[in-house]
């Protein structure tokens, strides 16, 4: 039982580079846990990193085009220190995060524990330049600032 939980946990809370997987007992994993518990745990999960993503698949292997788009946008800005939760590993999480943020679709992106939006919003923030500013507020310097070439 313990082994199973550990492996589920490892699969679900996977950090992209160097950030360790949470060792906190994940009680919401148990089938007996209530929806309330899932929501309570989500409150902690979204604050695990400055940038937290709930997605289908993993950053290394996204299982959906929209999740992949989020990963690619973050990569473009040089954001590789973030926590990604794979909702395909956990049905309760998949439903729970939608309730938690009152948002009907996956992927979902959080900055400093605050819901930012899904793929469309991140993409539009990227296109408008707002993403660079929002990352700056988190203390993350976008890699695009260093690679941009004059367009005219």
């Amino acid at each position: 039982m313990n082994n199973m939980l550990t492996s589920v946990l490892r699969l679900t809370a996977r950090s992209v580079r160097g950030v360790s997987v949470s060792q906190r007992p994940a009680r919401w994993m148990c089938s007996s846990s209530s929806d309330e518990e899932v929501l309570k745990n989500l409150g902690q999960m979204v604050k695990k990193d400055k940038v937290v993503v709930f997605m289908k698949g993993t950053p290394a292997q996204p299982m959906c085009g929209f999740s992949n788009a989020v990963v690619q946008i973050l990569r473009m800005h040089g954001v590789d220190q973030y926590t990604a939760y794979n909702v395909l590993d956990n049905q309760e999480l998949r439903q729970g995060v939608k309730t938690f943020s009152n948002w009907p679709t996956i992927p979902q992106v959080f900055f400093n524990g605050e819901f930012v939006g899904g793929c469309d919003i991140l993409l539009q923030m990227h296109q408008s330049g707002d993403l660079v500013e929002e990352l700056d507020k988190l203390g993350i310097r976008s890699a695009l600032l260093d690679t941009q070439t004059p367009s005219n």
């Binding site: 009152n102 009907p104 930012v116 939006g117 469309d120 919003i121 539009q124």
Partner: peptide, 17 residues
């Protein structure tokens, strides 16, 4: 933007299921 998208999501809540 987030609020606008939420308005659309709310409007189409039944359909989005």
């Amino acid at each position: 933007l987030l609020q606008r998208h939420r308005m659309v999501n709310t409007c189409l809540a039944t359909e989005l299921k």
